[in-house]
Measured scan of single mutants.
Amino acid sequence: MAAGGDHGSPDSYRSPLASRYASPEMCFVFSDRYKFRTWRQLWLWLAEAEQTLGLPITDEQIQEMKSNLENIDFKMAAEEEKRLRHDVMAHVHTFGHCCPKAAGIIHLGATSCYVGDNTDLIILRNALDLLLPKLARVISRLADFAKERASLPTLGFTHFQPAQLTTVGKRCCLWIQDLCMDLQNLKRVRDDLRFRGVKGTTGTQASFLQLFEGDDHKVEQLDKMVTEKAGFKRAFIITGQTYTRKVDIEVLSVLASLGASVHKICTDIRLLANLKEMEEPFEKQQIGSSAMPYKRNPMRSERCCSLARHLMTLVMDPLQTASVQWFERTLDDSANRRICLAEAFLTADTILNTLQNISEGLVVYPKVIERRIRQELPFMATENIIMAMVKAGGSRQDCHEKIRVLSQQAASVVKQEGGDNDLIERIQVDAYFSPIHSQLDHLLDPSSFTGRASQQVQRFLEEEVYPLLKPYESVMKVKAELCL
């Protein structure tokens, strides 16, 4: 049975990233139509530049190519590739079939990587351009969430054990800070992308030097003109047959890092959902379990974690691919890159769409948070109580021993009897502590235990987050809708 299948058929496997999760716009960027249309555009740009620099290419040939950029006979191309065992030459023939007058000058002087690699770089750039505003929107939604809850005390956790208090907004800023680093890295790697350009079979530009009869300047002009037509500021000066596969490492490393950030955020949300302090959106008709109707599973956060793990592992592909590119190139890269580049971007696209949807509907339960604080705060307040007693004339050592005994009794009630923490009640009825009984409410005010959390939130948002989001103001209103 021949390899390949009808990918629109229910009898043929289709990647869930495309069929179930990723956005239509990201799927289109990695589609065959987008790819092969870009090949034709690159052939047109090459012909236009070659004509401008004096090669015998007519206006009629150029116009014929322009008129057929979208006229792609995919069936013919597939048949040609089956016959020739070469995808680029299959599309040269297919393009030439609908451009008979231009057929002889299509791909003039070029090698397969002229269309293959340059198209990949265009796709990487455009895919990054799709991700950047999506990530900015996630940051914006979380920034709104953090600002609104900047002063809401909550129990902090280290080692997932109760620690000092923080605020809900401050905790959210930990998430935002990681995503801001990801946004900066995505922008950097996007701006650092260079075009492969017009380089020939081993990167020496020998074929173009021959076409222009040894004119170095025209060869350099050709490279520059096509690079500018493709919208790049610069091209690699040095290439082998391909652009260095280190570029793929750079791009997928940034995406993998984004995956790590999203995994951490969504894990926190899942843990908070278990504590009943916070939940992701839950639709009115949504079913959490087929057997347990009360369940409210954090399905979206779980999906993000599941896909983020996949995204983090994909960076190993370009690392290994770059390491086995012998001399000017081997074909070890080809099949692998067809999979890992598309999957990385479709996965990143999915987790950003999902995280935006989550961040637009996060639900906080202040009463649950308050109750958990009441359970733990008495123990945390013991040092403040000791200091207040010393100020009232008591002995630190005597007070410490009193607190120690009462704390152990209260802990026994919590752990052995399943009761509430009654340390404060014990202190309130103990005559030894009568000098500070009137101060206990103040000493137990949760806001006095959150330090500068709310001020940190305000400063972080104003100095770091809002300036970073400013270039994306025009796209901030787009909502994230999930079908599944």
Rank of each mutant, 00 (worst) to 15 (best):
residue 344 A to S: 13
residue 154 T to V: 02
residue 328 E to G: 07
residue 339 I to S: 04
residue 276 K to H: 01
residue 402 K to W: 00
residue 30 F to Y: 05
residue 96 G to Y: 02
residue 421 N to K: 11
residue 266 C to A: 04
residue 407 S to P: 00
residue 458 Q to I: 05
residue 322 A to L: 14
residue 419 G to M: 00
residue 54 G to Q: 08
residue 227 T to N: 01
residue 439 Q to G: 07
residue 254 V to Q: 09
residue 230 A to E: 05
residue 176 I to Q: 07
residue 357 N to W: 13
residue 126 N to K: 10
residue 97 H to K: 03
residue 469 L to T: 12
residue 105 I to V: 05
residue 237 I to H: 13
residue 229 K to H: 05
residue 390 V to A: 05
residue 47 A to Q: 02
residue 22 A to H: 15
residue 333 D to V: 03
residue 87 D to R: 03
residue 268 D to F: 14
residue 342 A to T: 09
residue 5 G to L: 14
residue 195 F to S: 09
residue 75 K to S: 13
residue 458 Q to A: 09
residue 270 R to P: 10
residue 301 S to M: 15
residue 177 Q to F: 01
residue 198 V to C: 14
residue 305 C to P: 07
residue 344 A to M: 00
residue 128 L to N: 11
residue 429 V to I: 13
residue 293 P to A: 12
residue 107 H to Y: 03
residue 443 L to P: 01
residue 237 I to F: 05
residue 371 R to S: 01
residue 420 D to Q: 06
residue 373 I to N: 15
residue 54 G to D: 07
residue 320 Q to I: 00
residue 160 F to L: 01
residue 416 Q to S: 15
residue 288 G to M: 01
residue 231 G to I: 12
residue 350 T to E: 08
residue 327 F to V: 05
residue 467 P to T: 01
residue 303 R to K: 11
residue 61 Q to G: 14
residue 144 D to M: 07
residue 426 R to S: 15
residue 344 A to L: 14
residue 258 L to G: 06
residue 222 L to Q: 15
residue 367 K to E: 15
residue 332 D to L: 12
residue 139 I to G: 04
residue 137 R to K: 04
residue 266 C to E: 12
residue 108 L to H: 13
residue 309 R to F: 11
residue 144 D to F: 13
residue 98 C to D: 10
residue 286 Q to F: 15
residue 378 P to F: 09
residue 349 D to A: 10
residue 33 R to W: 09
residue 173 C to I: 05
residue 331 L to V: 09
residue 286 Q to K: 05
residue 363 V to Y: 13
residue 474 S to N: 13
residue 411 A to W: 11
residue 88 V to L: 15
residue 412 S to L: 07
residue 180 C to R: 03
residue 81 E to S: 00
residue 287 I to G: 08
residue 333 D to Q: 00
residue 120 D to P: 02
residue 347 T to S: 13
residue 457 V to P: 07
residue 444 L to D: 14
residue 384 N to M: 07
residue 421 N to S: 14
residue 425 E to W: 09
residue 177 Q to T: 08
residue 402 K to A: 15
residue 2 A to N: 15
residue 437 H to L: 05
residue 293 P to S: 06
residue 336 N to C: 01
residue 189 V to N: 09
residue 91 H to K: 07
